[in-house]
Design a protein around this nucleic acid. Structure first.
Length: 154
DNA sequence: GCCAACGTTGGC
DNA sequence: GCCAACGTTGGC
């Protein structure tokens, strides 16, 4: 059974439009440097679906859907000393960090802003809406996924 | 630009 | 193992 997730990205760095324009509409999700987020990446399976969220945006919003097309593998940027994602803890022999490949599925006709999601019944316990939530990779419950999907397709 | 809510680092 | 200092995220 496939699972549901949410990935945050700053649109000024990498937006959903950037994903749609990428070769094969696919990108590797590099640069996650938080253990909890990494563990969620490692739990992802091919076919899992993902909400694409724009953080540090105006307004911050869920803007579309992507899917996992390659399960977790070593984030080789972590041992590239010229990369901004370099981490001396990581090496090819002992990779500390993981990434997945993500493919564009759809962009919502209208984004779903954070402040609108906050008042939707059934989303009260969503990680995204938790005060102080900073996780850039987070699981989404099936019920939450369905509620949000319905909101997006009005 | 501010600042709350984190996670990480390193001295002890 | 504790915890202060520091760095980062991300909404506002």
């Amino acid at each position: 059974m496939s699972s549901f997730w949410l990935l945050k990205s700053e649109p000024s760095v990498f937006s959903i439009d950037d994903l749609a324009k990428s070769p094969h509409q696919t990108t590797c999700w590099e640069g996650v440097r938080n253990y909890q987020a990494r563990n969620f990446l490692r739990a992802m399976a091919v076919g899992d679906q993902v909400f694409f969220y724009h953080s540090n945006a105006d307004p911050p919003a869920i803007v579309g859907i992507a899917k996992i097309v390659k399960a977790a593998y070593p984030d080789y940027f972590s041992w590239d000393s010229s990369s901004k994602y370099f981490d001396k803890k990581s090496s090819p022999e002992n990779p500390a960090w993981s990434m997945v490949d993500v493919k564009f599925v759809e962009k919502f006709p209208t984004p779903l802003p954070l402040d609108e999601l906050r008042i939707v019944k059934g989303l009260e316990s969503m990680e995204l809406l938790r005060k102080g939530s900073r996780l850039s990779v987070q699981p989404v419950r099936k019920e939450e996924w369905n509620i949000i999907l319905k909101l997006a397709q009005v």
